[in-house]
Design a protein around this nucleic acid. Sequence first.
DNA 1: GCTCTGACGTCTA
DNA 2: ATAGACGCCAGAG
Length: 120
Amino acid sequence: MAAATDHHRMRSDRPADSHLRVLTVVRRIPPGFVCTYGRVADAADMPRCARMVGRILRDSPLSAGVPWHRVISASGRISERGGPGGHEQRRLLENEGVVFDANGKVDLSAYMWRPLQSNR
DNA sequence: GCTCTGACGTCTA
DNA sequence: ATAGACGCCAGAG
């Protein structure tokens, strides 16, 4: 992936690369499925950086065409993020056929998309 | 440059 | 179900 051109060893490996990796993974989540922050981080080759994934999604402009709404917490719930927005996320997911139970949780065993398994 | 704090989390007690 | 601890990164001070 990175670094075929290491001649000058760019200062890369900096956030920008991580961002791209994360966004690339998220972009692969098929409609009607979800993935967790931790899972995305893992697939983006930065294990235990779930929170960073959230930050990246937040900082990424929606115009990037990234299905940010398909990323939810490991508990199957939508992260509140301290304000509105969760509503829209849920709406978008339901629009794709994702079902929420009475507790507002998604059945991960049914809707979880596993990036490492679907390899590619 | 260095420390401190926050963030769309996750795991354990 | 709830609470606290932990870890990685970025931005602010």
